[in-house]
Design a protein around this nucleic acid. Sequence first.
RNA 1: GGCCCCGUGGUCAAGAGGCCUAAGACAUCGCCCUUUCACGGCGGUAACUCGGGUUCGAAUCCCGACGGGGUCACCA
Length: 481
Amino acid sequence: MKVRTRFAPSPTGFLHLGGLRSALYGYLFARKNNGSFILRIEDTDQERYVEGATQVIYDTLRDCGMNWDEGPDVGGEYGPYIQSERKDLYLPYARQLVESGHAYYCFCTKEELEERRQAAEARGEVFKYDKHCLHLSKEEVQRKLDAGVPYVIRQNAPTEGETSYHDIVFGDMTFPNDSLDDMVLIKQDGMPTYNFANVIDDHLMGITHVMRGMEYLSSTPKYNLLYQAFGWEIPQYIHMPPVMRDEHHKLSKRDGDAYYSDFIAKGYLSEAIINYLALVGWNPGTEQEFFSMDELIEAFDVTRINKSPGIFDVNKLTWFNAEYIRRMDPARYLEMVTPWFDQVLAGKGINYPRLAELMQERTEVFNQVPAMVAFLGELPDYDISLYTHKKMKTDAAISKANLEMIRPVLEGIGDWTEQNIHDTVIPAIAAAGLKNGAVLWPLRIAISGLASTPGGAIEIAWLLGKEETLRRVDDGLRRLS
RNA sequence: GGCCCCGUGGUCAAGAGGCCUAAGACAUCGCCCUUUCACGGCGGUAACUCGGGUUCGAAUCCCGACGGGGUCACCA
């Protein structure tokens, strides 16, 4: 049978990295098995609806290289793929269950339920619906229905025995039936609950492998009872542990910075995000850690998904990002880094291609770039203590002397190229009987005002241009006087 | 609280009874390279939650405790 998996997000805002990883695993599993990946939008909760959220889901998945075979925008033979457009199809199924005795009408009001819930709590008990309305006579039910009394439809779950199922990652699961509550299938407004819609949709859409968060582990028996009541085949289950923000909290919509779009805005690459995310909760069983999407598909094996939650480590993501940037085609890097350069260097006449070369292996995340190159646009104010460097054997006095020595050398350079600067400056230092560092350190401080810079004194001098270089050397000399 | 799941270094993790004196990666620390920083190279610190079993032998199996998470909605 052809594998069919689905990603079924609610369009409640942005896609956070935990959700993205769920989508990824579903996608990888489908592709690995030459199956279909289906996108279904679960928007039955109109209160949580956020304008444009569906588009964000599309954009994010596509951006990450995940394409779906069926979905709201691409169609498919099992549509519609937006749950709100399917709302009329659930009630008949619920009625069918009432007919067969697997469900029943319930006229208890929310208020009554709430009272009983609180009473139970006061007694220190766990509230469980007592099947009150299950015992209404057929006539009475009909009378209420005819009178237009509001109702919900509840599942009639067994109270004795136990229900078991097999989960591909968690193994065999068994739950006592008395822990099963008679969950609501159809709400008072006629809309299905998430639980019910899910079962119906997954079946109607031919989903063979239900992949979802492990928070559904304990409600799965109730779903299975539903499948059985309909005489439908129960799908395979692949429950996945959550991605955590820390030991106690999982990544959620509340953690604003866990949104995919925020990471992209900061300058993280989608390839790095996907690569990192794939490895939180799963591993290939080999030493390989860099994976393209195709390689992930090739290596993915659901049985290697871990059972325990994984904490999201932005450090490691950042490392992956830095690695991806280093391995990037230089032309692409230049293109991507240009807007970040522009933030602080627009109109300053700095040679971007050369600066990009110097910056590429030093860039971990693009948003660090402006602060690293801003000094080229404007010399920052700095303290002369920077001139003192133990290893270079420099202090303020030595720096001043060496700067005075090298200034005329620089001034005498005709063709201001890196090669010429190097070939003039290095011999001059040797001629003066000094170590390279003794001159180049103060020079770099003078023209950058920074303890660390992308590139050394010569590269920076070239980027700055002769005029600006001399101007900054003079400025340094003034500071040292 | 009932039920369910999980428990290897700070983090991700390998490990499916002897190959474990417990891999690898990130982070961290040190050294080397180097005109700074970074990259790179080398090395260090750092873990089987605890207690009982089973076994000739347990990180691996069983039980219990403890810890963490989930779930018990007319939310999804």
